Simulated scan of single mutants.
Amino acid sequence: MTNSKINMLVIDDDDINIFIIKKVIEKTGYEVDMISKSNGQLAVDYLSSITHNVDIFPHVILVDINMPVLNGWEFLEAYEKLNVLKPDIYLYMLSSSVYEYDIEKAKTFKSVNGFISKPLTIERLKELLQLVTP
Results as ranks from 00 to 15, higher is better:
1 M>V: 06
3 N>P: 05
3 N>A: 03
4 S>T: 14
4 S>R: 01
5 K>V: 14
6 I>E: 04
8 M>T: 03
8 M>H: 02
8 M>E: 02
9 L>T: 10
9 L>Q: 11
10 V>I: 14
10 V>R: 13
10 V>D: 15
11 I>E: 14
12 D>W: 05
13 D>N: 13
13 D>W: 01
14 D>I: 03
15 D>E: 15
16 I>P: 11
16 I>H: 08
18 I>R: 09
18 I>H: 07
18 I>D: 08
26 E>H: 01
30 Y>L: 06
30 Y>H: 07
31 E>K: 04
34 M>T: 09
35 I>H: 15
37 K>W: 03
37 K>G: 12
37 K>Q: 15
38 S>L: 03
38 S>G: 06
40 G>H: 02
43 A>H: 06
45 D>W: 01
45 D>A: 13
47 L>D: 01
48 S>W: 02
49 S>T: 02
51 T>F: 12
52 H>G: 15
53 N>V: 04
53 N>Y: 04
55 D>C: 13
55 D>G: 14
56 I>M: 11
56 I>S: 11
56 I>Y: 06
60 V>C: 12
62 L>D: 11
62 L>S: 04
66 N>Y: 08
66 N>Q: 14
67 M>R: 15
68 P>G: 11
68 P>M: 02
71 N>Q: 11
72 G>M: 03
72 G>R: 00
72 G>E: 09
73 W>I: 02
75 F>N: 08
77 E>F: 03
77 E>S: 12
80 E>W: 00
80 E>C: 09
80 E>R: 01
82 L>T: 00
85 L>R: 08
86 K>M: 10
88 D>E: 15
90 Y>C: 02
90 Y>T: 04
90 Y>A: 04
91 L>I: 03
94 L>Q: 01
95 S>A: 06
95 S>M: 00
96 S>Q: 09
97 S>I: 02
101 Y>L: 11
101 Y>I: 08
101 Y>E: 13
101 Y>M: 11
101 Y>C: 12
102 D>K: 09
102 D>L: 09
103 I>E: 15
104 E>A: 11
105 K>Y: 01
106 A>D: 05
107 K>E: 13
107 K>N: 04
109 F>K: 04
109 F>T: 00
110 K>I: 03
111 S>K: 07
111 S>R: 04
112 V>F: 14
112 V>I: 11
113 N>W: 05
114 G>C: 01
114 G>M: 06
115 F>E: 07
120 L>F: 02
122 I>D: 12
122 I>E: 15
123 E>A: 08
124 R>I: 05
124 R>L: 07
127 E>R: 01
128 L>M: 07
129 L>T: 06
129 L>A: 00
130 Q>I: 12
131 L>P: 13
132 V>C: 04
133 T>Q: 08
134 P>F: 00
